[in-house]
Design a binder for these strands. Structure first.
Lengths: 333, 333
DNA sequence: CTGAAAGCGCTAACAT
DNA sequence: ATGTTAGCGCTTTCAG
């Protein structure tokens, strides 16, 4: 624009320091002076230059968000949670999609650090030692959202994927009496997928069933791979009587795939999704799903970051949010 | 971090000006010198401070994106288009959701301008004169994406909503012989909704049908309002034989609502959605929909912005992208 | 091809 | 309560 703090100072007959105090809400300003300055600001249409402020104060009030794919419903919801809390605390979001590519993730981090973000929220497929090193080098807090790191060195917000999956399988097997349960995995987050898989295996065994590798289908998180999974399972000699998927979108695929095979859900096949996105209500039969509070994960991550940024007390750096099964019509209650 | 251009200069035995030249790719540097500097940068782990750069150069290589709601599939897709092109041109995105609230939109714009964004992409419900004024005051280019402004004062990227809706209704009435067509509106963008509505009315009249206000149901863009719309229409004495909605999500609602009433789609009722989101494939019957290229709208908007920013030649500031009807199983072809 | 010096617009001691 | 004075880390003339 051109109008600076200096112009305002002249207009209001004060020093630039006083103007600075006013725009920063410093209390040490006589009300009359403040008013004079405010008037001048208004008349001149002064807008403080956040870049200059950032340089002088070494704080930018902006945080970087690295997300696998903003067009994915799951992450978009999470992003919204981050955003709402960020704006509540007057932070801005610099948002970039990484497509889960490690190089891109690291590059984005670097770019964001160049922009002097005050902190970073990271969502990604896996946290390698390269990641950890980069995060440590960052000199600003980094928080993992819906992303697991074995070493637990970084603050993070997640649900207990192992228990969640175990609960889901148990829920299913309780109503089915020793019937096979299929599992459609997702490559989205390597570690999380491992935890889910382990939960699945343990629950299967706990319910007295034999674990069978054939009952695991590697999905890619898309609707189409749900369709494919249904096809895969239903062509087996002893198809599972229930299928649990790693995401709702794949669950819809499974349901429709089953219906295409003339298999009725939930009578002949129970299906349970994961995440409890809005999709769960947008299918017939409606989808039973493991609720993962995406919005909350985002919101809590951002809240945690603000605490770190303001030096507030942190009780727990590894936050585990509750999950639960939301029963709908794709399973027999 | 602490390591500055000055440290690098000392380490490489050159002046900071030379270091600056190297990191800016200025050609006027002897290869040997460049190499020395590069080595020093590497050894010291120097990371240029984009904030300082921004202050000195008056360019931040970041653009503001004001979006109604990032968790909405439609906008998320659009955002992805923006992002991909932005990252291709080395721009960063500052992203904020406005929930279509005018005050919030204007506030966000202001904040982004304080951050000295080089340009803005705006998506919103309506462009009032206050908006126009604010945009003009901005001193950086503002582009409307999937957002219509009557006055055509601002560069924008859209489809022809009027024609698109007209096409959809014509498509429907051609296969139905004088049957009524219902329309579920959306409040998302006031002006766009008007255009769609006008397209609907004109097409109805053109096909020799009488226009009937009862055949328009005011939706709110949610799945639930699609359900409600189906309920509303099917309880009428002469229910429409086809329904066109302003979004795919509402169309799913209509389909399921109809099925709940025992009405078969498409045999007894044709349904056509709008936007052709991924949702269109995730329902049975699959949904015929008017394709609106969200990703492209985002991508083209961002590309247009980069042109404006680099002073490149612009042929047309009001870009109208093509639409078309994607036929699936919710209508009788 | 390289260096010196003057800012960019603001914050943050330090004075007064 | 208010003013003065250094920078923040970099770009950008202007010299040479």
């Amino acid at each position: 624009m051109g109008v600076t703090i200096y112009d305002v100072a002249k207009e209001a007959n004060v020093s630039m320091a006083t103007v600075s105090r006013v725009i920063n809400g410093n209390t040490n300003v006589k009300p009359a002076t403040r008013q004079k300055v405010l008037t001048a600001i208004d008349e001149l249409g002064f807008r403080p230059n956040a870049v200059a402020r950032g340089l002088a104060s070494r704080k930018t009030t902006s945080v970087g968000v690295i997300i696998p794919d903003i067009s994915n419903l799951f992450f978009a919801e999470l992003a919204r949670g981050i955003e709402d809390i960020a704006s509540m605390y007057k932070y801005h979001i610099i948002l970039s999609s990484s497509d889960q590519q490690k190089t891109k993730e690291l590059d984005l981090l670097d770019n964001m650090l160049e922009k002097q973000v005050d902190g970073v929220i990271f969502m990604g497929s896996s946290v390698t030692s390269d990641h950890i090193e980069a995060f440590n080098q960052a000199n600003v807090p980094v928080i993992l959202a819906a992303t697991v790191d074995d070493t637990e060195q970084l603050p993070s917000v997640n649900i207990d994927y192992y228990e969640a999956m175990k609960d889901a399988v148990t829920y299913l097997s309780e109503q089915m009496d020793q019937e096979a349960v299929g599992f459609v995995t997702s490559p989205l987050n390597a570690k999380i997928n491992d935890m889910k898989r382990q939960g699945y295996v343990d629950a299967i065994k706990a319910s007295g069933l034999a674990f069978n590798e054939d009952y695991i289908y590697p999905g890619d998180d898309s609707y189409q791979s749900g369709l494919d999974a249904a096809n895969y399972f239903l062509k087996q000699q002893h198809p599972p009587k229930a299928i649990i998927t790693s995401s709702d979108e794949m669950a819809l695929g499974v349901i429709h795939g089953a219906q295409d095979h003339g298999v009725s859900v939930p009578n002949e096949l129970s299906v349970i999704g994961f995440d409890n996105t809005r999709l769960a209500n947008m299918v017939r039969p409606t989808l039973t799903s493991v609720l993962q509070p995406m919005y909350d994960i985002g919101a809590v991550s951002m809240r945690l970051l603000t605490k770190l940024l303001r030096g507030e007390e942190i009780e727990q750096e590894q936050v585990v949010l509750p999950h639960r099964i939301v029963e709908r019509d794709s399973t027999n209650a």
